[in-house]
């Protein structure tokens, strides 16, 4: 109902930073995970996770496959349920199923590894669907908004096409526009470039960097260290369902403290 009410009176936009620095002033807490646990059968995929993301912060989650980083990302808008602990977005604990959950999800943008554009709708309709059906925006305003967002991510000229007619990079940029159309408080990126051909990775990363520079709060699961270095304020390294290490990107990539992180970095940096 009153999801727009922030927990603090201070608008966070003023406090965002233009370039990542380790000693920047953080906004108020926006996403808070406390003692989050999840099992897949016998596998303990999230082990007592405590994590706070502040307004305007860009957080990169990194880690070997199976470390639980995707599950963590998906748990934040409850595409994965959790066994215990709590997750709060902008001060409100994630509700169970139902209308309240749907409303909260509208505040959290999500970009998937496999784009997941609505295959039966045009690019424009993909972007206008949420504003019209969830926000109740009229068709004209929604299309105006959609076109400006599509322009912003550089696919404005593809608005009338079907998703299957677009390249992977173009589809993923449409997916970013679709998420932004909901004017979310935070954006989740679940390995957004992993399914892309190498030559398309940069066009997506560029759009994400631009978004970060505008002050969007972002949680990004990725292996793209270039992006982490350029845009992230903080890197969280996960392994075996636990947060092993967190540090500013420069510090993490040059001098990882834990053996697990060193081992992981050596593997992805050797070629």
């Amino acid at each position: 109902m009153d999801q727009s009410t922030p927990t603090t009176g201070q608008p966070a936009a003023d406090e965002t930073v233009d370039a990542p620095t380790s000693d920047r002033v953080l906004g108020a807490p926006l996403v808070e995970l406390k003692h989050v646990n999840k099992h897949f059968g016998a596998l303990h995929v999230l082990q007592d996770i405590d994590l706070t993301i502040h307004k305007g912060e860009v957080l990169v989650v990194i880690g070997p496959s199976g470390s639980g980083k995707s599950t963590l990302c998906r748990a934040i808008n409850r595409l994965e349920t959790i066994d215990d602990g709590s997750i709060a977005v902008d001060g409100k604990t994630l509700p169970e199923e139902g209308k309240a959950l749907a409303q909260l999800r509208a505040e959290v943008g999500m970009v998937f590894q496999s784009f997941n554009l609505f295959a039966h709708k045009t690019v424009l309709d993909n972007v206008t669907l949420g504003p019209r059906k969830v926000r109740g925006m009229n068709k004209k305003d929604a299309e105006e908004l959609a076109r400006s967002l599509l322009d912003r991510v550089g696919v404005g000229n593809q608005a009338g096409k079907m998703p299957a007619q677009l390249s992977g990079g173009q589809q993923q940029r449409v997916a970013i526009a679709r998420a932004l159309a909901m004017q979310p408080k935070v954006m989740l990126f679940d390995e957004p470039t992993s399914a892309l051909d190498p030559e398309m990775v940069n066009e997506v990363l560029d759009a994400m960097v631009a978004l970060a520079e505008e002050g969007m709060t972002m949680i990004v699961v990725t292996h793209e260290m270039g992006f982490a270095r350029k845009a992230a304020h903080r890197v969280v390294f996960m392994a075996d369902g636990q947060i092993v290490e967190e540090a500013p990107p420069e510090e993490f990539f040059t001098a990882p403290k834990s053996d697990r992180a060193r081992d992981f970095l050596s593997k992805i940096l050797t070629h």
């Binding site: 808008n77 998937f112 669907l129 997916a175």
Partner: peptide, 27 residues
């Protein structure tokens, strides 16, 4: 219909019936 379609529908804030009506059933 791939599971991702339903997840994307839920992620933009559609609850079950609108997601079914607008995204899942048409496909």
């Amino acid at each position: 219909v791939p599971l991702g379609q339903a997840e994307a529908a839920r992620a933009i804030g559609l609850s079950f019936l609108p997601a079914a009506q607008l995204v899942i059933l048409p496909q």
